[in-house]
């Protein structure tokens, strides 16, 4: 903090400091414009190509063979199934783990360790999760399946839910807990009847953010759910899903497939961004 006050009377120095200031702040503004520039470019491209590829066929027909026309029905359905599997299995575990951290072991070393590990899982490469589920489920069961994809998504959702439930529960005033316990309620009643309802908004936001995240994940599905050109409603089979379809179609040499990939990209991006914007809005409204 060596702000040179006495010498600041020298006019040359003041001018130099002002120029440095101007350069610095201009750089900051340009950096922001630079960031926004890519956002506009990337979203603009997705909207433009996506909307020009949009048609009702997308929602009524299966993914086509090369050269044929078709839609994305099986992929949309597969994605929905796997996201539901991920949410249904991941959410209870995540909320319970967050509850344990916030209510039962708050302030102990083990809670610290689990929070630390959870935060690492939160940013761990998703392809690694895919490999793990491959080893765990696909190799032991002998084939790719929608269940394996759902489990991979659950493992990506889990740390998000753990963290948000933990953080929201810790924001609830202690007096509320003391009042419940003073009435003679056992601890589990306190958690289920008082704390969870009080933390509802925060936990729901966490789940929504996690859903937004898993809806766009591709890498963990590549070697778990794989892909399926045909309709299947049975998650024990390999299942088509939007991200992997986009991946395969975008890298193919066929024009039709490219346009289907763009349509899928548009649907996915709109879904992901709307969900996360809604979640953030809910969080802001609460604060």
């Amino acid at each position: 903090m060596s702000v040179a006050v006495p010498a600041a009377h020298a006019p040359g120095l003041i001018r130099r400091r002002k120029i440095v200031n101007l350069i610095g702040l201009t750089f900051a503004a340009c950096a922001t414009l630079f960031g926004l520039f890519w956002l506009v470019w990337i979203l603009g491209t997705t909207l433009y190509f996506g909307f020009s590829a949009l048609s009702p066929k997308l929602f009524t027909q299966m993914t086509p063979a090369p050269g044929a026309s078709g839609g994305l029905l099986n992929a949309l359905f597969g994605s929905a199934v796997m996201i539901v599997i991920g949410v249904v299995t991941g959410t209870p575990v995540g909320v319970m783990a967050g509850t344990w951290l916030a209510e039962y072991r708050h302030g102990t070393p083990i809670a610290g360790i689990i929070r630390f590990v959870n935060d690492i899982l939160l940013s761990a490469p998703s392809i690694v999760i895919g490999l793990f589920v491959y080893e765990l489920v696909v190799r032991t069961s002998g084939h790719f399946s929608g269940y394996a994809g759902g489990i991979a998504l659950a493992l990506i959702l889990l740390p998000v839910v753990v963290r948000t439930s933990d953080e929201t529960l810790r924001l609830i005033p202690v007096s509320l807990r003391e009042a419940t316990l003073a009435l003679g309620a056992p601890r589990w009643r306190m958690v289920t009847a008082i704390l969870w309802p009080a933390a509802r908004t925060g936990i729901t936001t966490g789940i929504l953010l996690a859903v937004a995240r898993i809806s766009g994940e591709t890498a963990p599905l590549l070697f778990t759910a794989l892909n399926n050109q045909y309709w299947t409603a049975n998650p024990a089979n390999p299942m088509a899903n939007i991200p992997v379809v986009i991946f395969q179609y975008a890298l193919s040499p066929y024009e039709d497939w490219h346009s289907l990939a763009w349509a899928g990209a548009l649907i996915m991006t709109l879904l992901v961004l709307t969900t996360s914007v809604l979640a953030r809005a809910a969080l802001k409204g609460k604060r």
């Binding site: 990337i42 591709t218 890498a219 953030r280």
Partner: peptide, 17 residues
């Protein structure tokens, strides 16, 4: 919010773009 939107865009969209 706009910058956070950039964080929400799925990574496969970056790849495709």
């Amino acid at each position: 919010a706009a910058i956070e939107l950039l964080a929400g865009v799925p990574s496969i969209i970056y790849g495709m773009w």
